[in-house]
Nucleic acid binder design. Structure first.
Lengths: 350, 350
DNA sequence: GTTAGCACTCTCGTTCAATGAGTGCTAATA
DNA sequence: TATTAGCACTCATTGAACGAGAGTGCTAAC
């Protein structure tokens, strides 16, 4: 795995093989390399080098008389040392800009749109995890009497996030009590971040208020519920069927298997969630994922958010034979856009 | 197409052919029919009848030495005259009940769940269009000052539907003006159904209120927006990849085509929306759909809602070789459950 | 009107040989 | 010593040939 396990020439050859294979999806032979990339080497020499590379585990042969294909180890070396990150084409940038141009005020729309763009640009499956907002500031908690039997609890957090919940009750409740409650709530809760709010404390507060327990309790529950919803990470996955475009999944059984797997939101969520703890850009190539269904897939993830505080994750899932260079540049580009929009939306509320 | 275009025997034979084909997905031959279904007829007789049925267009031959498969016309006759609607198995009812058992208060959850159940039970693709709520009653419109710069508009409709929208502004607004606005709104709007509210009238209302135009206007827009959201029909589609289970789509190209088509939410939405105007149970078989991609698919739809007022649509999309009988019973059953739940949620608010 | 029988058609799976891409090894070359 | 030309070998893929099997249509007999 070390850089100098391979000499200059071996590296060049390995890169050629992988580049070619990513493009063609066909095992690549020694002659192809000798011709296409002018290395000034004969095919026989390359064959020898390839034999070495195979012995070291960077490439494999599907069968004796076929060319070579990269192994997971090969891809790993490639993404760490060899690949070129070619910048996005002008048209692609235009497409992205245009898609992002719409004025978006709600954060979930933003996330959704981002995943959509990514899957379109890369042609693979995109996953986006919405911000984990345990640091979000609660702006306001309000109780509204809809009619005699119903109360609406509204919780507003920074970034224009609003959640609400309806409560049915059978008590007569005085307008003034509601106002009192609202005031109290706002004193204790507003301006705090979610992780600063302690629910037990909240529950102790009411003393001089004439609202029966049967109502107060559901109110607390509703508030907690709203806060939980704010804090909860949403999760979008887009372009699942894109994988059908790639020959490695032209076998229907395999395609089904992978599709079914990608539909398991929980699994994918977990996968992406793990990556949140990782560094900026994280690759999991083929069997580096413990999950069996992922053995022919790679996932590239990165975190987004304000510097220092990573709050969400975006990722791309595709075949191990993925255009890593392009995906990396796309994902980075989107990340920056996302960061910028987030600042616009949240301002200092994060 | 007429009932008596086919005599008793032809009908029986046609039914046998279709039943068999639905089960096996294989062209069915004369001997199979003669043996399986004890009609007391030899295969040669059946052959003759089949030739007639073919001439009349109810069945076709993929090639000379193969059995017969139903044509769209055949299926049409089948669903109108021949098919048996076999009731749901006990286990299936248990599954449905269990899934529906969760307490659901939000209508969109209900719809989502319904589509999920349908696709699970039938094994096909389910589409559910949420209620069109132009008859929904607006319960309350409320303005909330979140902080000095932001107002929250909350619109509550019957059935626990709540929508809100945040407004940013730069004016100083008095607490008492907000209260005045709230009162006025509730006088004019609350208790009315959406189609009774006329927006122009709404816009004329404020006279003695000290809120600048720059704020009033966005408020109206926000209210309109919320109302529009309430009225808008949501749309869920579930089990898209189910079609991969059926041999008619084992050809990857075809499968892709159909999958891509099903992902076109707009198209499907339109398809289902058209059905809303139709009678209780509507079938579109194969090429009866004008859309080319649907030529191998059928869609069965039905409307749900309170008697007289149909408000939403549920449907199942599958191969023309669909287990029509079973789908019909499932869809009917779910419809009843849905109707019941809707009454629970909306009460008299519809 | 029904059916047994038969010739005919067409698909499908299997076998077999030819093809071609690619390898590994060896011996010659620089 | 490193490179390469050459050659024998391997193996997947392709296409042709072929037989088996399923099913039909038609005819003649019941």
């Amino acid at each position: 795995m070390a850089w100098d396990e391979l000499n200059e020439r071996k590296r060049t050859i390995l890169k050629s093989i992988i580049d070619d294979y990513i493009e063609s999806a066909q095992p690549v032979g020694s002659r192809t390399i000798a011709k296409k990339h002018e290395l000034g080497l004969g095919s026989a020499t390359i064959r020898n080098e390839m034999a070495d590379l195979e012995e070291l585990g960077y490439i494999t042969q599907p069968h004796t008389s076929a060319g070579r294909i990269p192994s997971d180890k090969g891809y790993r070396f490639y993404v760490e040392n060899l690949m070129q990150i070619h910048s996005l084409a002008r048209e692609e940038i235009v497409i992205i800009r245009k898609a992002m141009d719409e004025k978006i005020e709600e954060i979930n729309h933003l996330i959704k749109k981002a995943s959509n763009i990514i899957s379109n640009i890369t042609g693979y499956t995109a996953v986006v995890m919405s911000p984990q907002l345990s640091r979000a500031v609660i702006k306001s908690v309000q109780l509204l009497a809809i009619d005699e039997k119903r109360l609406l609890v509204v919780v507003v957090a920074g970034g224009g996030i609003v959640h609400n919940r309806l409560i049915k009750h059978d008590s007569l409740i005085d307008e003034s009590d509601i106002e009192k409650l609202n005031k109290t709530f706002n004193i204790i809760i507003s301006g705090k971040t979610i992780d600063q709010i302690s629910m037990p404390v909240l529950r102790e507060l009411p003393r001089d208020i004439n609202v029966p327990k049967e109502v107060i309790f559901p109110i607390f529950e509703a508030i907690e519920d709203c806060v939980r919803k704010i804090e909860a990470t949403d999760f979008y996955i887009d372009g699942i069927t894109n994988i059908l475009n790639y020959p490695e999944f032209s076998n229907l059984m395999k395609a089904r298997e992978v599709l079914d797997f990608l539909k398991e939101k929980d699994l994918i969520h977990q996968l992406v969630f793990e990556a949140t703890k990782k560094q900026q850009l994280d690759f999991k190539i083929g069997s580096e994922n413990e999950i069996d269904e992922m053995k022919d897939l790679s996932i590239i993830t990165t975190v987004y958010g304000r510097e220092g505080k990573d709050i969400g994750t975006i990722g791309v899932i595709g075949p191990t034979r993925m255009t890593y260079g392009k995906v990396v540049s796309s994902i980075k580009y989107i990340r920056e856009l996302l960061n910028r929009e987030l600042i616009k939306i949240f301002g200092d509320d994060l």
